[in-house]
Design a protein around this nucleic acid. Sequence first.
DNA 1: ACCGTTGGCTAAGTGGCTTAGCTTTAAAGC
DNA 2: GCTTTAAAGCTAAGCCACTTAGCCAACGGT
Lengths: 191, 191
Amino acid sequence: MPRVGLNQQTVVREAARLADEVGFQQLTLAALASRLGVALPSLYKHVRGADALAQKLAALATAELATAMTTAAVGRSGGDALRALADAYRGYALRHPGRYPATQRVPDPADPEHVEAGERAVGAVFAVLRGYGLTGDDAVDATRALRSALHGFVTLEAAGGFGLPRDVDRSYHQLVASMDISFRCWPGTGG
Amino acid sequence: MPRVGLNQQTVVREAARLADEVGFQQLTLAALASRLGVALPSLYKHVRGADALAQKLAALATAELATAMTTAAVGRSGGDALRALADAYRGYALRHPGRYPATQRVPDPADPEHVEAGERAVGAVFAVLRGYGLTGDDAVDATRALRSALHGFVTLEAAGGFGLPRDVDRSYHQLVASMDISFRCWPGTGG
DNA sequence: ACCGTTGGCTAAGTGGCTTAGCTTTAAAGC
DNA sequence: GCTTTAAAGCTAAGCCACTTAGCCAACGGT
């Protein structure tokens, strides 16, 4: 019987593709194995199990999201950078509905790539906020605020939580514009 | 064999309690049945299945959350009402870590109580925003923004997504303060 | 050509959810 | 008070997910 020739990377990448098609919750080892043309237990030669696969997928998605945010914001500053980063964030979530939820997993300290990806993501946000003159505790608070707003919006949108007919794109732009205002006159005590 | 005397309400309420103890994802029919002192299939006399139970739990939690927000905001206006509502929101999520995720389920049109609870929740937010003079499309956008911010923060906090040592309570208050600023000079086109 | 590593397999067990069908309780009616 | 009946409980059995154990064959290096 000829070998398929899998390795961890192939498995994780296919898992990401499958998750985008069927949803993160519906990503199952059985479906993944069948997609890859192997029997289910064969996957255990490449990943420790379902949870480890989810963690590796999280590392991949976080790295992709961090890259998207970074490249969007580079060369811009202030509200310009904020809008670019926010659009990149939501764009990634819309393009990759299965990977995006994985990015919410807290980085595994035992996976250096995952940790590094998480740091890059936070770093991208930090860099944008520095353009508003926010540093120290203010920057931490503002980062949490921005992450909350973007993640919350994207999650509610994906869940179909916005019932009213009002255009969702416009609501998002208003949200980002309101964050821009907040950052320009941040209510913090300073540093 | 004596009967335990369950009904749908007892089952759902116990499910809510159990979810708060073990987590929404770990809420299982087997654990619930054992907690109630019946065999697993007996639960099917009261709920259609696992998904229906989750929906009923969502209706319960949404109603509780709506009540918490409404009673917090009543008699207040402007930033005062906003802070009260926001504190009630996060307070509920922290006190009921298993029920809170259930509130994100989109109301089931076939369950009038669920629909009504969802409307009350949105209505509470709308009422607060009216105090800022926000109506029409602006109110819709602002509602989405506020829900996104609160839900995002609470979700990230529950997931342990805030790594840095900065006090989380303070970050939340800063977030609410920044939303207050945003609502006072809302960037919308009006109307 | 051989041999060891490794990637594939089947078999089997656990723990979820669900359905089918039976029994017995407890309440309603006579 | 007895009978009848709807409902609340049960056991048994099946499905599907994940996981482990252990076997076999393909491929790479010598």
